[in-house]
Amino acid sequence: MHSVAKYEPYLYLLPAISILCVFLLFPFIWNIYISTHGVSITTILKEWEFVWFDNFIQVLNDPNFHTSIKVSIIFVGGSVAFQFLIGLVISSLLNQNIKGKQILIALIMIPWITSGLIAAFSFKFIFDNSFGIINYILEYLGFSSVAWLSDPKIVVWSIIIANVWYGTPFTILFLTAGLLSINPSIYESAKVDGASKIKSFFYLTLPMIKSFIIIDIILITIWSINFFEIPLIMTGGNPLFASTPASLYMYRQAFEFGLLSKGSASGIILLSINIVVAFIYIIALKRRG
């Protein structure tokens, strides 16, 4: 009787753990297995040859993968920086006593509830070099049109803008929840002690929502690293791989070129990058106190 009670909590966890094993652990191990074998669309029905780390070496030696890592750094860096800053500003504004706050929050959430594909198609039309509304407005105002989707130096910023539009509502929602968790009396005490609103924000608000900030930044970073619908639909990674982040590189290897092992190897490299980035964030923010 005593031993059953001891293991009872684990039994309750069993359904959740089983689901995790089937949908997370098994695909992960399967992915490792494929990445160490020579599997492509042409060999999928044949015997899979064990190739050690050949696929990883191929990926790491591919100049297009190097380009995609550079694009990922700009894409993720730009997306996270702008999503976080814009999200922080808007959530702070929403935390004030303003009329129609609930309606504003609902409106701001629209991009988040929109499908990533719809957002990508919308921005593809908005940024179209010839017929997009942005260039129409620029030309109407007397400026030259911009090759948003075909200039290799600009295209990554076009996909960042689309991703920021799509992802910022999550940061707003998350940080708003964090701001609501702060007891308002703390601000009143700070005011009595002579703290200005800006000082209160930097020395009270930010430290008190630190845990929300850490989780938000980790999540939006990982999502941005893995997100590929927007570049896939808006540009297909073109021109010259200038809008191909590592996630899209992985997708194209596996599902466009049929190189399943190379795609799996890129996926594992991407996962490792995710883990490293998450650790860096956590350690950096813990050190900051």
Partner: peptide
């Protein structure tokens, strides 16, 4: 200028 988006003839039908 090369067009990164191709609308499969719709751009022609729209007289662009």
């Amino acid at each position: 200028s090369p067009k990164p988006n191709h609308f499969w003839g719709q751009e022609f039908a729209d007289k662009k």
